[in-house]
Simulated scan of single mutants.
Amino acid sequence: MITRPRRATASCALGVALASLVSLAACGTAAVPRPARPAPSAPAPAPSRPPTLAPGPAGVTPVFENGPRRASDKTVALTFDADMTADQGPRAAAGERFDNPRLISTLRALRVPATVFMTGRWAEEYPAQARSIGHDPLFEVANHSYSHYAFTAGCYGLPSVSGDRMRADVERAYDAFRAAGVPDAMPYFRFPGGCYDRQALKALTPAGVTAVQWDVVGGDAFATDADAVARQVLEGVRPGSVVVLHCTRSAAPATERAVRAIVPGLRAQGYRFVKVSELIAAAALSPSRPSAAPPATRTPGTG
């Protein structure tokens, strides 16, 4: 007989408990909701590839000399060749300076973007400077060969690289940049002395580089008159120009002083300084720029 009241009591207790749960659920406090499953993260965007020009006819290496000539966008790229040939190690050991840290400091102080065309031998000799330039977003490092030997015969007295070694020389320079700690050197190549022919362009096709020349010769190689160098640049620049100068203290001692006159002079004319990559990107998008065969031979100046 006593089991029924117990059942009734248990039933009442269960009913109260259920009622309480219903009441709590109605207030939204019955249970902690399951945390929402996080949405799948979007894949990281692929790093953008540096701009290059399309190969010329028969797939030969394209050649770039200047950007679009737009008066509405007066851009200019200052480029500096960090030259050191493969056989100049003894001269460096004897105290000759093939670097120019003061020039790099001046470009930083003036906030001037620039492209440094570096030889692999230079990067080996000055790895800390190469690494510092390569990590500075103000600059970009491009390839000026490993050895600074000419890619044609009769190029300002430079020793020459044989046709079957040209690509290897360029790739050896990229290896030297990586060894020095330079990240992401650009796929741009400047022929030593600016000298090339169709054989050289064909030899470099597998390297996938754009050959970068210039349309304004700074004239700083072996010059001592900084004012004359500055005048030559200021008078020669047009929208889209690429200026060739040097980052070699012993062979171009007036360059840093010239730059201190060039930069304010061009800014006063309304010019904006950019890296070569920006000019190439603009040229690649320009409908008026044909992918034509480059000239068969070019020896425009020193580089």
Rank of each mutant, 00 (worst) to 15 (best):
V233L: 00
P253M: 11
R231E: 10
G219F: 07
R231L: 05
V229I: 08
A252C: 13
Q232I: 01
G236Q: 04
L245P: 12
G236T: 06
G219T: 06
A226Y: 06
A223G: 08
A252K: 08
V217G: 07
D225F: 04
L234V: 04
R238F: 07
S241H: 02
G236S: 08
V244H: 01
W214N: 04
F222D: 14
G218V: 08
R249T: 11
V244I: 15
D227I: 01
Q213D: 15
V244E: 01
R238T: 12
A221T: 12
V242C: 09
V217F: 12
Q232M: 06
A223T: 05
D220W: 07
D225S: 03
A223W: 05
Q232L: 05
P239Y: 08
G219N: 07
A230Q: 01
R249G: 14
R231V: 04
G240H: 09
A221P: 10
G219R: 01
A226I: 03
C247V: 10
V237C: 06
C247Y: 11
T224V: 13
A226R: 01
D227S: 11
A221L: 15
G218E: 05
A223V: 05
A221G: 10
D220N: 09
V233G: 00
P239H: 07
A221N: 13
G218A: 11
P239N: 09
D215G: 09
V244R: 05
G236L: 02
T224M: 09
V237M: 02
E235R: 09
Q213I: 12
G218T: 09
F222G: 11
V242T: 12
F222V: 12
V233K: 00
V217D: 13
V216M: 09
A254M: 05
